[in-house]
Design a protein around this nucleic acid. Structure first.
Lengths: 256, 256
DNA sequence: GTCAATTGCGTACACTGTACGAAGAATAGC
DNA sequence: GCTATTCTTCGTACAGTGTACGCAATTGAC
């Protein structure tokens, strides 16, 4: 589940900002900052230290101005987040692999995964109503083009793209969480387990959980090194695309 | 991605708390509260108003005591979250459907889904290193028992359970996000879209996104009513279990 | 030169988790 | 019954958060 929300102000103002279509005024002092500069600073902080560190004061400090100055350029923190989202979506490709829907969907999954890994704070942003900026639109168009013309209905196309995006989100979330908990705690999974087992053994009836003991120890031995997220991603993606493949086959040849 | 973290203090203290095995002192004034009472109050708030509303001061207010009083019972907010998690896991079944692994895994998915729907704040809690309380242990044991004795290796059993849990988490996250954004904004998806399209039409080149326009409008017509999360859940779960079925078949009859 | 528009930003408010220490209450040992 | 010890309650304080308000300074249009 996500925690950070989009700006909920005037749609006209938000879209003006996302598409950079506000006419600049002729009178008054020259602005010292630009929207792009503010977004870049916010991205630097969020990429390096997480969304929690990206406060208005912190971004303002990064730019050498007072906190309230930012509100001359951006209506609020929600809209800044919208701008950050649309900006990093600009890193995605714009044209899908032509001809082979499976290769194209595979690329959609992989590119989205890399985007999440480069900007883990994206995992915390609610996108059920995304800011309708140029790159958000281009992302959706790119993803749809992967499954265009293969016999799916429009609604199925949307559902398929959402399914792939949902899978990638979940897989990367698990991987990033596992990576971050090691950093934050300064302990590997094995060290953490070894610190708990003696007390657990003393306090609880471990005989009541025989499967957990057996499987847990097997997993511990196998994955002594940090959790192999790459392998898990490949495996799950293959299963998912197999499922889509069945749907596509069913649509192309519905008669038995 | 999640936002709230577990208590990271002394494992011995945490486990003592989770298993309620701390000997109560003989001297000094009688405590006015109990750990269970504090957890119940915190759950009431989190269930009704979300994890964001569940602050230490708020829980203390609910119980009619000062904020710092809670720290006599619980080391910190992280440990309180651990206790909440272990408590709601107690609502899950303890014994899986015997004999039919697919029915058992299906039930694991459905029960977990209902748990997330009853306690949406669970979606925000990082569980890659769960608090090792009695109900967390029982949950894992229950889930493993669904796939025990069907030919999978121990590592595959763990991976399969994790796969199902990951799917459920993602599916419910999407559904809850969609539900909450309607509440928070006071707008249905259609209203939101109609509020944006005129400005978008004026500002951006909508001709550049023909697929988005076509598919988006088809989805809008089909799902005028709020997003049908139940249908999406059933569909995805069936595909997922089909994938697991292939793995099980492969393990039972590995020779071609 | 004057006026209107615009920018920069200090202050303030209601929140957060929790460290510290003082004050009071209950019991164990005598 | 008295004292010493242990334990509970909780006020205050601190460094954070997003942002509403209003004032001073700066710029271009006329």
């Amino acid at each position: 589940m996500t925690t950070e929300y989009s700006g909920s102000g005037d749609p006209a103002k938000s879209l003006e900002l996302l598409w950079r279509s506000r006419p600049q005024p002729t009178r008054g002092p020259k602005p010292a900052l630009t929207v792009d500069g503010i977004v870049a600073a916010a991205l630097r902080i969020a990429d390096a230290e997480g969304l929690g560190a990206m406060s208005v004061r912190r971004v303002a400090d990064e730019l050498g101005v007072g906190a309230m100055t930012l509100y001359r350029y951006v209506p609020g923190k929600g809209e800044l987040l919208d701008l950050m989202l649309d900006t990093v979506y600009g890193e995605l490709p714009r044209r899908a692999v032509p001809g082979d829907w499976r290769a194209a969907l595979d690329e959609v999954a992989r590119e989205n995964r890399q985007l999440y890994l480069r900007h883990p704070w994206l995992l915390q942003v609610a996108t059920s109503r995304p800011p309708l900026g140029p790159n958000v639109m281009a992302k959706y168009e790119w993803e749809l083009s992967a499954v265009e013309g293969i016999g799916l209905t429009d609604v199925e196309m949307d559902a398929t793209v959402a399914l792939v995006n949902g899978y990638v989100h979940g897989a990367v979330r698990t991987a990033v969480e596992a990576r971050q908990v090691i950093q934050r705690s300064g302990m590997t999974d094995k060290e953490w387990w070894l610190a708990h087992v003696p007390h657990l053994d003393q306090i609880g009836d471990l005989e009541k959980f025989p499967l957990s003991a057996r499987v847990g120890s097997a997993v511990g031995n196998e994955f002594d090194a940090p959790y192999d997220s790459e392998h898990a991603f490949e495996y799950g993606l293959e299963r998912l695309l197999d499922g889509v493949s069945a749907l596509v086959a069913n649509r192309t040849a519905p008669e038995p």
